[in-house]
């Protein structure tokens, strides 16, 4: 790696003498294989007909390094997630948190749709729900998106008899659906109605990229076991935000690492503790002592007026 960067600096110097400042950062590894097309043409002239590409994709390793792998490898790792044992290890040094800004939510439900799509969930199983809340008669109603709160003292994990649901070092609470015995004690123990159960054989899509089960993707789904929002660890591993965060058109969701004090809603990155301080962040039902990883910003100074209508495209249940 250092060899490469030296080479590059040398060349730059000879070309323009302007790159003294340049230090190669995380993208250095990317250079080695970048632009396969051009190199190929330089070495042997062929017609520029479409052919197999040497696509390379950047991947973040568990320790936060960016490495480049061939796309054929990616396909498997990207969609399959880590093995059952590896999934129990959190990404080192991270403590993932989410901040949900209630003042920006207008129940567009894009988050939910994206979640349903990426986890291959049917209509009736919703891992992410948007509740219509009204604290008392006088109070104004507001929309409250609620994923799994990934508690630091998770009551669901406490009661699991077989270690099927577990708390990772990076704060995520995941489920190993190949171990779950389906006793549903975790569902009874969760105060936030987060968990859902596969009452019958789940309908699985045929065109799935990977058929190997991983707790990081929660897929393929298993009959007779419990599932829930997983904060998309397969995305986090790639250095990408969870699907609900990127899907939200209004920047309701901030997601990030509390250890480096920053959260990002896809557009802007802000300091996590400053955000909570400035906007009076709170956690839902703090009194229970479950210490959720999800914080809420109160629904004051709304971006949108509250409209109590079924959102577009939402199917009405009879």
């Amino acid at each position: 790696m250092s060899q490469k960067s030296e080479d590059l600096e040398k060349k730059d110097d000879s070309a323009s003498g302007r790159r003294k400042f340049l230090k190669l950062g995380i993208l250095t590894a990317g250079l080695t294989i970048a632009g396969g097309g051009l190199q190929k043409v330089l070495s042997d002239e062929k017609d520029p007909e479409p052919k197999e590409s040497g696509t390379k994709i950047k991947v973040m390793t568990p320790d936060g390094k960016l490495v480049e792998v061939d796309s054929t490898h990616i396909k498997e790792h990207d969609h399959c997630g880590a093995s059952r044992d590896e999934s129990r290890q959190g990404i080192p040094g991270k403590k993932y948190v989410m901040v949900i800004d209630l003042s920006r939510c207008k129940n567009a439900l894009k988050c939910q749709k994206s979640c349903q799509k990426h986890h291959f969930l049917p209509e009736q199983d919703k891992w992410l729900k948007v509740y219509k809340m009204q604290d008392n008669e006088e109070a104004s109603p507001y929309w409250m998106p609620k994923p799994c709160l990934h508690c630091d003292k998770p009551p669901c994990v406490k009661v699991c008899p077989v270690d099927a649901t577990f708390k990772r070092s990076d704060g995520l609470v995941l489920i190993d659906n190949e171990r779950c015995i389906g006793c549903r004690f975790c569902m009874a123990a969760c105060p936030y109605s987060t968990r859902t159960f596969n009452w019958d054989e789940p309908k699985q899509p045929d065109n799935r990229a990977c058929n190997e089960y991983s707790p990081e993707t929660s897929n393929p789904r298993k009959k007779g076991t419990v599932e829930k929002c997983d904060f998309c660890p397969d995305m986090l591993k790639l250095g990408k935000l969870p699907h609900c965060v990127t899907a939200c058109p209004n920047g309701v969701y901030y997601f990030g690492d509390a250890n480096e004090d920053s959260v990002c809603n896809g557009d802007e990155t802000v300091r996590f503790r400053q955000l909570l301080k400035d906007k009076a962040g709170y956690r839902y039902m703090e009194a229970l002592g479950t210490e959720p990883s999800v914080y809420y910003l109160p629904a004051s100074n709304r971006l949108f007026p509250f409209k109590d209508a079924e959102p577009e495209g939402e199917e009405k249940h009879s």
Binding site: K4, D7, L8, K11, D12, S14, A15, G30, L31, A34, G35, G36, G37, L38, Q39, K40, V41, P48, P50, K51, S53, T55, K56, I57, S71
Partner: peptide, 25 residues
């Protein structure tokens, strides 16, 4: 000058061309 290569888009319809280090030279 001319053709630089081809790529296949991913599920999000995106692909990224990276230029090799000798491109700058």
């Amino acid at each position: 000058d001319g053709w630089m290569g081809n790529l296949v888009t991913d599920d999000e319809g995106e692909c990224v061309f990276m230029f090799p280090d000798n491109f700058n030279t």
